[in-house]
């Protein structure tokens, strides 16, 4: 998962790992460690498996890529190593073409590359442009790797009270948007 410091990238990876844990699976979440500075590029990783995860290296060939900030494309090659059958989830209200990454998106199987305006959803429900919860909801719909119910519980474990509820609302809306567009794609 790529983003910038202050956008909750590390928390996103952790929440995803909690969601997987709640489903009885093994999960390992960790940041690419560096001096944390607001605005600097941050990468966090999450491995999910049904068996014990022993590997400790950074993920160089992800099955799924979540990009929280499209301005990163100019700074780093976030797509390096993305597996051919992989998934791409991008936080933006622009199109892949506008962002000049339509080729990458097209190289993935149909329906695997999705944009969600997660920051807008976050602003709407939470009042702060922290897209991580919404992106996890979208992720659940996109990949089916975790159930949206687990995502909800993971968010509630991380954020308490009203903030938790608001983030859950953002996640559910994002889930519905992506699930809806999946259905639309399927019928086409």
């Amino acid at each position: 998962m790529h983003g910038r410091g202050g956008q909750g990238v590390v928390t996103a990876a952790e929440m995803l790992s909690v969601a997987a844990f709640l489903e009885g699976r093994h999960a390992q979440a960790f940041p690419s460690f560096g001096s944390e500075r607001t605005g600097a590029p941050v990468v966090a990783f999450c491995r999910i498996s049904d068996t014990e995860i022993r590997l400790r290296e950074p993920i160089m060939e992800p099955d799924c890529l979540i990009v929280q900030d499209p301005t990163l494309f100019k700074a780093i090659d976030v797509f390096a190593g993305l597996r051919p059958g992989g998934y791409l989830l991008l936080n933006t209200n622009r199109s892949f073409a506008d962002l000049h990454i339509d080729k990458v998106a097209a190289s993935l199987p149909p329906g695997h590359a999705v944009e969600v305006s997660a920051s807008e959803l976050a602003m709407k429900h939470v009042g702060r442009p922290l897209p991580n919860a919404a992106l996890l909801g979208a992720f659940a719909a996109l990949t089916g790797l975790v159930h949206v119910g687990s995502v909800q519980k993971a968010i509630e474990q991380t954020f308490s009270g009203k903030i938790g509820a608001a983030n859950v609302a953002a996640a559910l809306e994002a889930y519905n948007i992506v699930a809806e567009s999946n259905r639309a794609d399927a019928t086409v």
Binding site: V18, F21, Q28, F30
Partner: peptide
């Protein structure tokens, strides 16, 4: 450091 201390796992 980091690899264990900052990793979230079961």
């Amino acid at each position: 450091g980091f690899i264990l201390t900052h990793a979230m796992e079961r």
